[in-house]
Design a binder for these strands. Sequence first.
RNA 1: CGGAGUGUGGCCUAGUGGUUUAGGGCGCUUGGUUUGGGACCAAGAGGUCGUGGGUUCAAAUCCCACCACUCCGACCA
Length: 414
Amino acid sequence: MLQSQLFAKIKKETPKEAEVISHKYLVRGEFIEQSFSGVYRFLPLGFRVLKKIEEIIRAEMRKLGAQELYLPALQNKNFWLETNRWETIDPPLFKLKDRHQKETALGSTHEEEITDIVRKRIKSYRDLPFSLFQIQEKFRNEIRATGGLLRTREFLMKDLYSFHSNEKDLINFYQKVKMAYFRIFKRCGLTTLCVEAATGTIGGELSHEFMVLSEAGEDRILICKKCNFGANIEKIGERTKCPKCKGQLEKRNSIEVGHIFNLGTKYSQAMGANFVDKNGKSFPIVMGCYGIGLPRLMAAIVEIWHDEKGIIWPKEVAPFQIHLIPIESTQKVKKIAKNLYQDLQEQGIEVLYDDREDKTPGEKFAEADLIGIPYRIVISERTIKSNSVEVKERKEKGTKLVKIKSLSQFLNSK
RNA sequence: CGGAGUGUGGCCUAGUGGUUUAGGGCGCUUGGUUUGGGACCAAGAGGUCGUGGGUUCAAAUCCCACCACUCCGACCA
């Protein structure tokens, strides 16, 4: 991508509506832009990051054997009446009326939709277990949106649903999802804690939240210093002693990036999703649901990975892998930079090529630091004297001169 | 929804009744000079001071209403 063509007007100053660090950097770097309260636009740079996160999640869902589908945002009121959540779900639904004055709502979650799909098809224990997921927009009528992408009213979510003939099978799958979630967050550069959580209006038997420790987080959790117990204060209340080992509990702020639920038979009973077992007896399907909010995850990554100059994207979620920056636009520098740009692209590496000739080195560097691409490669008269380029890792302080010939080798070794 | 705050060209802001035909910085346009950490010179474009109403000889400035946004509370991926 030529930076001269990139649809991004990177800002020197922080717009005043931004308060948390991830919001500030994402807005300044033109990853996102607020449309109105709690509703965000993803600009080309931000969209690339979002897609990277989406692909990581999709890959891990497939490894679980889950099949992807896509459900409507506009939902049938009758399903919500069946589960008795039309009025009670919190945050409430965004409700609207069609031209015939018939009520409908924008989906804040999809248990009703998925359970309807399943009840129409699944009649036998032989069809179980299986799992389905989607990556789709959710709408939540929050009292208040906060912290940029940390809490929005419309957001992209991955929701996975699993269906089982018995509790044991569900618990087995639940554990696998847990492991998949740890892998997803790790690939996004995050260390997460899995803590016991309150099930809220999703309901069910029990649930676990995946937490990223951060001061920007709204959740308060208690972590045991002795055993690996952890829980949301919302679930267990304020206390100082670990309920498992009596060890000292530590209170921390955290961002909830994922939440998994053992739903039991709450929805299958409410909506009549039953199967017959070997003996011909009918039982409600045992269900689980598992969510990850993508924009919040993106914000959490920035909360963890930044310095005073800007974002430091972990490689797997970075919008580009290499930021190629020629400085001093002499014919020789330009020619070598252009060739290198083509070479790298042919190798399938995503390169942002700062071909702008009217920008000073300082400005290019400042913008590069802000948008946080993992590798910065500078080409100048100085570096080409020794047939080299200067390589700097965003997360490191120092730079390294690397011969152009051995650049690919150097990058591959990373 | 309760509490607090903010609203001035695209962005950050100065100005809190009269010398303001609303000032500066960034950005933008044109020309020139520059080029290893957010360059310099010159010329230029861009504003219903959130909206409506009121007070006043006079309102960005005071009053009222409304709107929008941010933060704290509750809720959540």
